[in-house]
Design a protein around this nucleic acid. Structure first.
Length: 439
DNA sequence: GTTGAGCGTT
């Protein structure tokens, strides 16, 4: 039977009543309609004095007993999104503040929602998606004559963080699994968000540290990559895409030499983007989310690492370095190098805690934010958390890369871990998990 | 009136 449940944002706050469904469960959407961003419920067990979590499954919260009773339930928000009363954890500020700034810089994009039930209205969409944050736009595409839904729509969030959260999971909307993606029409724009620049005409005496030091005056440098053996170019990645964009086209004098800066936009990997990524919706940012492809925030000591293996695997040696003056040859080599770097690592998997969350599988990577609201166990987990073969497991990580992701923890195996020709080294080098392969 | 991979009459 339907009943009203007492829910408060925090213990001691004035509760408000939210309605349950006829079967006694409380829809997460109902909850988040009143408490935006809510991802669960808990309550104080007065026998033990401890807090208890409420069971959540398929977007429904289940009463602890036969019904919800008259007690007050407390709303649970994704980690890192404490409400004003809940002071932020003292150890978090550096990371969360920093990453939050990063979010602000990233602009939201329209997102396409695929797989909508025919019956779902824009109202339904809004009600569902507002749990991730403020919505600026909601559309259900319909046939203008019949008014019949075409089964897809668009949403746009106000905050980038909402978008990230939203894209990190699949969505159960009115009884159907739906996918949220960056629309194809927006692909070009992502390119402009690349955080990595190509630095041409480098001289051999320029070390990664030199470049880092030099470019730091324009913004935070998160990665410097200098191919070995020497090939007269380098890649520099900035924390802020705008920094990178701002430098493009310029000539700079470093160590007495004039280097040329341009966008690191390898067409080479472009064609692999979407196709190489399984369409399981657990993968956030599939496709060409510019920054994700490029960033490889751990090559700082790039004088080792990729080193030896590269020449062999990518046959770059055959290009003949006599062509160094030729721009296109340089670019081609650069593209080869780029595509050999682990793409999709860093930003792509950002905070996607959601992405790899609870799947009943052990491939859970860094648990942070949103508890997925409805999870299908029938989907193979996205092979996240791996970068250059290093499996990142467990929560936290605590490394100092952006949000602590995508960083292979600085200790790249000295032995070339054979990137091979795979365009998706993260996968190719997935250490076959004993037993439980996800065939 | 049906359908189920895709990509937006603004």
């Amino acid at each position: 039977m339907s009943q009203y449940i007492n829910v408060a944002e925090n213990e001691g706050n004035e509760p408000m009543e939210v309605p349950s469904e006829d079967d006694g469960t409380l829809l997460l959407t109902t909850l988040s309609a009143q408490f935006p961003g809510a991802c669960g419920l808990k309550y104080r067990n007065h026998e033990t004095g401890t807090l208890r979590g409420i069971r959540l499954s398929d977007g429904r919260l289940y009463p602890p007993d036969t019904d919800w009773g008259r007690q007050v339930y407390i709303v649970v928000f994704p980690k890192g999104e404490k409400t004003k009363e809940n002071s932020i954890h003292p150890t978090e500020p550096t990371h969360s503040v920093k990453s939050y700034k990063r979010f602000e810089r990233q602009k939201c994009s329209d997102l396409i929602v695929l797989g909508l039930p025919w019956k779902s209205s824009e109202e339904d969409l809004r009600k569902y998606f507002q749990q991730f944050g403020e919505l600026l736009m909601v559309q259900v595409k319909k046939d203008p004559k019949s008014g019949q839904s075409k089964g897809f729509g668009f949403v746009r969030f106000a905050e980038y963080e909402s978008q990230v959260k939203c894209m990190s999971q699949r969505h159960m909307i009115d009884g159907r699994w739906c996918d949220v993606r960056i629309p194809n029409s927006k692909e070009g724009a992502q390119q402009m968000m690349n955080r990595k620049v190509f630095v041409g005409r480098c001289t051999e005496d320029m070390t990664a540290d030199d470049l880092r030091q030099y470019f730091s005056k324009y913004g935070e440098v998160v990665d410097v990559f200098i191919p070995k053996p020497f090939r007269a170019f380098a890649f520099v990645s900035f924390a802020d895409p705008e920094t990178a964009q701002g430098l493009c086209g310029e000539d700079h004098i470093i160590k007495g030499a004039s280097v040329h800066i341009s966008g690191a936009a390898p067409k080479a990997s472009e064609k692999y983007d979407r196709r190489m990524v399984p369409n399981h919706g657990h993968v956030a940012y599939q496709g060409s989310w510019g920054p994700g492809r490029g960033g490889n925030p751990s090559h700082t000591n790039s004088n080792m690492g990729v080193g030896g293996g590269m020449g062999n695997n990518l046959s770059i040696g055959n290009l003949g370095l006599g062509a160094l003056q030729l721009n296109h040859a340089m670019l081609a080599a650069a593209q080869a190098v780029l595509s050999s770097q682990t793409g999709w690592g860093p930003l792509g998997l950002t905070h996607q805690s959601g992405g790899a969350t609870t799947n009943g599988d052990q491939l859970v990577v860094a648990t942070t934010t949103a508890a997925p609201h409805s999870i299908s166990t029938s989907y193979a987990p996205a092979p996240m958390g791996t970068s250059n073969g290093a499996v990142v497991t467990g929560a936290g990580g605590g490394n100092n890369s952006f949000l602590g992701w995508g960083n292979q923890t600085a200790e790249m195996p000295p032995a070339p871990h054979t990137v091979a020709t795979s365009q998706v080294p993260s996968w190719g080098s997935m250490p076959a998990k004993a037993g439980s392969g996800w065939n």
